[in-house]
Amino acid sequence: MKFKALTAAVAIVALPVTVLADPDDDKLIINGEIEMISVTKAPEHVENLDTIYSGWHFRTDETQALQIDDFDNPAMIFVDQAADIYETVDGAAGKSCASCHDAVESFAGLHAQMPKVDPETGKLVVMEDLINECRTERMEADAWKWSGADMQGMVALIGLQSRGMPMNVAIDGPAAPYWEQGKEMYYTRYGQLELSCANCHEENYGNMIRADHLSQGMINGFPTYRLKQAKLISRHNRFRGCIRDTRAETFAEGSDEFRALELYVASRGNGLSVETPAVRQ
């Protein structure tokens, strides 16, 4: 008995990597009823992957558990705050979101198609752009900071209305040049470390880099609650952090470069369920 226990202990010490390697095969079901598509066939435009995985599959059981019940999900406090803000008048025009829009449930499906090209201006817009346009143009209120708690709470609240629906961003027609720009960025080896998104998230997903289990870098769970930072993290904030960590001069949150990268990275996850607000390490 004693000998067996010792053998088991040795095995664990000798094989830490094997235990953690590859995405796990757990099933993501939220609140015991919403069956999420967290693993599926890669879309045709993703040339180098056969299967796409939600980042949820690369996290520990403890972190995974925080996302499967909304009562345990620490992001829901911020989503609840956003639901209050949705009804609250702000700005010179004396309006709230609810003054013009139906209940927030009316946004079901929007997140799954974002980013998209504004047919009037021809510009690529992300959810933060739509929210700030409403605030400044119609509410005559101040624009929110890109990664502020107000903004990311609202992005998550609107995104939550699409939870479970498969991501389905358009990459053709007017979106095509933005998509190409984002793809070019995805494969560019930035910084003094000369690392591209693909070096880690396409060539090495499933592998450990120091204490971090590399995922495919999917953004279907964003804004995502990051335990490390104890708040909702925006997509552009995460892009910025990754590029900074290549010892590069990064791009700004809300820059056109990051809008294009967001479109491309979102398109790599076409077919995965919208998961926001996800919980990650």
Partner: peptide, 14 residues
């Protein structure tokens, strides 16, 4: 020979 090298891990230009 780098693309957008930064000032170490600050995210800023060197």
């Amino acid at each position: 020979g780098f693309i957008r090298p930064g000032d170490a891990y600050t995210g800023k230009a060197p």
